[in-house]
Design a protein around this nucleic acid. Sequence first.
DNA 1: CTCAGTACTTTGTAACACCGAGTACCGCTA
DNA 2: TAGCGGTACTCGGTGTTACAAAGTACTGAG
Lengths: 108, 108
Amino acid sequence: MDDLTEMLKGTLEGCVLEIIGGEETYGYAITRRLNDLGFADVVEGTVYTILLRLERNGLVRVTKRPSGMGPPRKFYALNDAGRAELARFWTKWEYLSSRIDKLREGGG
Amino acid sequence: MDDLTEMLKGTLEGCVLEIIGGEETYGYAITRRLNDLGFADVVEGTVYTILLRLERNGLVRVTKRPSGMGPPRKFYALNDAGRAELARFWTKWEYLSSRIDKLREGGG
DNA sequence: CTCAGTACTTTGTAACACCGAGTACCGCTA
DNA sequence: TAGCGGTACTCGGTGTTACAAAGTACTGAG
């Protein structure tokens, strides 16, 4: 697949929110999950910057836990503000994708 | 609708390509068309920067024509490279939206 | 004890949409 | 004839974002 970088702007953060909303998890695992889902080129650095942003914006609760497989992990879970932000993300995504599909179908 | 700015990154240019691909047209009209299609907050300055970029990247043919209603208009039409880029855009869009929908459906 | 795998951090970069202000041409009206 | 609103394009600067690159650090296997 071609480079999706620009198209991911504004949506990748929503994807991370959705993943965290599904279960409490941590950066490294989120990166693997995104890769498995087809976002093959997303790297750790990108996910960590998003996680730091979510934390800074007060959308997540963070818990540090030891790991048997390396350094301690920072687990992320959505709080109320995070769930609200996730809902807003899906509203925007639906709006955007419906407009784009309309444009394609003859709107053009 | 909330602010779509970040989500439009990487897609708005594709929308402009699609509009130009439908018929030869000019910046001011493209802005109105986008506004009518639901991209209500897109302003002229944004569209013109996209058009200049398309021109710089050799994706369009530009023709200046006088207008009965103001200053001369710069009409834009896709060339071969532009049509190829438009096709790439739709491929990427389909890929992205399918992954996002999958993520939402339980992928999360 | 080196190495691969796990796991997080930090600094800097490029691309994009957007903002604000400006220029300029036109038809209408007072 | 002066002003105004609508049309039409340009330009410099801003903030946000995903990404690249390099580093730190812990663990278990060979």
